[in-house]
Amino acid sequence: MRNLIEMPASSTQPIVVGDMRLTMVDDCALVSVSTDAMRTAGVIELLSSMGYPLPGIEQNTGSADQGAFWMGPHQWMLWRDYRSDPDWAAEIDLQGLAATTEQTDAWARFDLSGSALVSVMERLCNLDSARIQTGLATRTQIHHVGVFVVVVDAVAQIYVPRSMADSLVHAVAGAIRANLAVA
């Protein structure tokens, strides 16, 4: 077998303009958790006892190095540092209460921060700008691509399908420049 070459989802970042900064986070492990109305309470209790408290509707429970965010009714995504435990997804045993799926390679995560975060985000997507603050987790679209926007400590984590990573960087770079033009 030929040696595999590790390639980034996007090689066109970071984007730094003034104090606005967009960087790819390539060591983020992701696991989705999906269940139904009957089993939701049990899943919340079990994951909480495992150290992963699940957030409410349109919310996230993120900290600096791990967290969970709401994706939709009865669906969440868990994230943490990938390199510390590459087999993390396989170790989450929910005892048949929910389906867990490793999503690490499905998404690329970009962190957007800076004083003009809300102005830039409102140029990118149609979220109510008043809601773009720490604690938010929601799905919307940026340049026709479905993305998750998760705000942790005033940093917007944008999860985009990995194959669309460069498109997201292009969109965000344009929005940062557009915002600068009117600032």
Partner: peptide
Amino acid sequence: ANPARGATS
């Protein structure tokens, strides 16, 4: 459409 979906968090 499915009220049961609302019993969620």
